[in-house]
Each structure stands twice: as structure tokens, then as C-alpha cells.
Deep mutational scan, measured.
Amino acid sequence: KVKIAGPGLGSGVRARVLQSFTVDSSKAGLAPLEVRVLGPRGLVEPVNVVDNGDGTHTVTYTPSQEGPYMVSVKYADEEIPRSPFKVKVL
């Protein structure tokens, strides 16, 4: 029921550039959304989540370095389908 889309989860994500993606939970009811961005060697990146007021949230983060990242998206305390997402930061 929760959908996710945006360039911040795709290929070609650049280090030190603001990345974003949208989480659409409009068909999933009200529940807490939790997003974690883990970088190389367990680095935890700050994440900004904005409630758009229409059942969607815009998530932004800036990867601080190149390497493999994991983006975990939980809704109602459960990983959404395909989460955690593997993101290769260049």
C-alpha cells in the first residue's frame, strides 16, 4: 500500500548533492513513517522528512561520501516492500 519513487533511490546518486524521494502512504492509513540512511562503514546520514499534507512525504538527504548506501523505509514499524533500498553513491 505504500509506494516510493524518486531519483534519491536510483542509480547515479552523487555524493554531496541533495537527494530526494517521495513516500506515498495515502492508501495505507495513518501510521508513523521512519526513514534511515546508512552509508559506508555504518555512517548514519541526517534525513529530513516533510509531510505534504496529502498522504505523501518528501524525504531529502545528502550522502557525504561515495560508496554503498542503504535506505530503510518503515511504515507502521514494518519495512515497506523492497526496503531497505541499496543505493550506489558515486
Rank of each mutant, 00 (worst) to 15 (best):
K1Q: 09
V2Y: 03
V2D: 03
V2F: 04
K3H: 12
K3D: 09
I4N: 02
I4K: 01
I4M: 09
A5N: 10
G6E: 06
G6T: 04
G6S: 05
G6I: 04
P7T: 12
P7A: 12
G8L: 04
G8E: 04
L9P: 03
L9E: 02
L9R: 01
G10I: 07
G10A: 08
S11H: 15
S11G: 09
S11P: 15
G12I: 13
G12E: 15
G12N: 15
G12L: 12
V13R: 02
V13P: 03
V13H: 03
V13I: 08
R14C: 12
R14W: 08
R14I: 15
R14N: 08
R14H: 13
A15K: 06
A15M: 11
A15Y: 07
A15I: 06
R16F: 07
R16C: 09
R16M: 14
R16W: 08
R16Q: 12
L18Q: 14
L18E: 15
L18V: 12
L18W: 04
Q19Y: 02
Q19I: 01
S20C: 11
S20W: 13
S20L: 08
F21M: 04
F21L: 04
F21R: 00
T22V: 11
T22K: 09
T22Q: 08
T22P: 00
V23F: 02
V23T: 00
V23R: 00
V23H: 01
D24R: 02
D24L: 03
D24W: 05
S25H: 14
S25M: 15
S25E: 03
S25C: 15
S25G: 07
S25R: 07
S26P: 04
S26C: 06
S26V: 06
S26A: 07
K27D: 14
K27I: 08
A28G: 05
A28R: 03
A28Q: 05
G29I: 08
G29C: 09
L30P: 12
L30T: 15
A31F: 07
P32S: 11
P32A: 13
L33S: 03
L33G: 01
L33Y: 00
L33R: 01
E34L: 10
E34I: 13
E34M: 11
E34Y: 09
V35L: 04
V35T: 03
V35K: 02
V35S: 00
V35W: 00
V35A: 05
R36V: 12
R36M: 10
V37Q: 01
V37C: 14
V37Y: 02
V37M: 06
L38P: 01
L38N: 14
L38W: 10
L38Q: 15
L38K: 13
G39W: 01
G39M: 01
G39K: 02
G39V: 00
P40D: 05
P40G: 03
R41Y: 12
R41V: 08
R41M: 14
R41E: 14
R41C: 14
G42R: 08
G42D: 13
G42V: 02
G42N: 14
G42L: 07
L43K: 14
L43W: 07
L43S: 12
L43N: 13
V44Y: 12
V44L: 11
V44G: 11
V44W: 08
V44K: 11
V44Q: 13
V44R: 12
E45T: 10
E45I: 08
E45L: 09
E45F: 04
P46V: 07
P46A: 12
V47W: 04
V47I: 10
V47G: 03
V47P: 05
N48R: 12
N48S: 13
V49T: 12
V49K: 08
V49A: 08
V49I: 12
V49M: 14
V50N: 11
V50E: 11
V50H: 15
V50A: 10
D51Q: 11
N52F: 07
N52W: 05
N52R: 10
N52H: 12
G53M: 10
G53S: 12
D54I: 05
D54A: 08
D54L: 06
G55K: 10
G55W: 08
G55D: 07
T56R: 11
T56Y: 09
T56G: 04
T56Q: 09
T56A: 06
H57Y: 15
H57F: 11
H57E: 03
H57I: 05
H57A: 08
T58Q: 10
T58D: 10
T58L: 13
T58R: 12
V59I: 07
T60P: 00
T60V: 06
Y61C: 02
Y61A: 00
Y61K: 00
T62M: 11
T62S: 05
T62R: 09
P63M: 01
P63Y: 09
P63C: 03
S64V: 09
S64F: 07
S64Q: 12
Q65Y: 09
E66V: 12
E66R: 06
E66A: 13
E66P: 15
G67F: 00
G67W: 00
G67A: 03
P68F: 15
P68A: 15
P68Q: 14
P68D: 14
P68L: 15
P68W: 15
Y69H: 12
Y69K: 00
M70E: 15
V71D: 00
V71E: 01
V71F: 03
S72F: 05
S72E: 07
S72H: 15
V73C: 06
V73T: 01
V73Y: 00
K74S: 06
Y75E: 00
Y75T: 02
Y75K: 03
A76I: 02
A76C: 07
A76K: 15
A76R: 10
A76L: 05
D77W: 06
D77L: 06
D77F: 08
D77P: 00
D77N: 12
E78S: 08
E78H: 08
E78K: 12
E78Q: 12
E78A: 08
E79D: 10
E79P: 09
E79C: 06
I80N: 01
I80K: 01
P81D: 09
P81I: 05
P81V: 04
P81M: 05
S83H: 01
S83M: 03
S83T: 03
P84K: 01
P84S: 02
P84C: 02
P84A: 01
P84N: 02
F85W: 12
F85L: 09
F85M: 09
F85K: 04
F85C: 06
K86T: 14
K86W: 09
V87L: 14
V87D: 02
K88E: 15
V89D: 04
L90W: 11
L90C: 15
